[in-house]
Design a protein around this nucleic acid. Sequence first.
DNA 1: ACTTTATTCAACCAAGTGGTTGACAAGCAG
DNA 2: CTGCTTGTCAACCACTTGGTTGAATAAAGT
Lengths: 120, 120
Amino acid sequence: MSADPLSQVFSALADPTRRDIVARLAVGDATVNELAEPYDVTLQAVSKHLKVLEGAGVVTRSREGQRRPAHLDAEVFDLMTKWIERYRQQAEERYRRLDALLEAMPDEPAPKDETTGERK
Amino acid sequence: MSADPLSQVFSALADPTRRDIVARLAVGDATVNELAEPYDVTLQAVSKHLKVLEGAGVVTRSREGQRRPAHLDAEVFDLMTKWIERYRQQAEERYRRLDALLEAMPDEPAPKDETTGERK
DNA sequence: ACTTTATTCAACCAAGTGGTTGACAAGCAG
DNA sequence: CTGCTTGTCAACCACTTGGTTGAATAAAGT
């Protein structure tokens, strides 16, 4: 257990039911019963999903009488967006470079374009 | 098989090795052998990872002699960022509203703040 | 034609996951 | 105290997953 935070968040949101729960919680805090209502799974299953989201830091829970409302804690999302944006931009940048390169030499004998290449 | 695209992308990136591969591919295209080199897993394992990324639309592959270079296709990332940003902003918006509400009534008997509430 | 290099397919295995049912703790309401 | 509501814990099951080994395919190189 206890994988790196990024893996946990990605993994937590890889489930449609869990993403759905996040969508609901974005509107407002809710209890397990309220969250389970739209689905035809047991309460325990939803409780498990909630625990996964909690473990990933997506959700926090409080105590309020016998209810334990779940609250969306959207800060961890930044972790993901930062990772994603980094490589998306890097890939796009590379694409632009290659594009410019191809445009700059329209008649060269095409040196195979091995960016990482370096085969021995 | 064939889960929704969003689940597939999230799931694909939930593995650290796979994220690592994406990071490498952001620098430039690479073959299975090149990608497998830094890890002490078998070639087949990396080939599987690549297939997962391909299935998620994160990576495309071409044929070039006997090599099959993998290329990062960062467009699907937009799908994720859109989803994430949506609920992050929604949650932050809700937070601001609640904050303003609490500030506006500093002595009310606190009507329990049930945003979804509505229990029958 | 034979060999080497690059990659995949197939079968298998241990561990993880999403779901279930059943028992149990913790609060309120009589 | 007794019961009802809300929620969790524990054990179990089918299926997926990341990994392995071994055989197979594909394109060169000799």
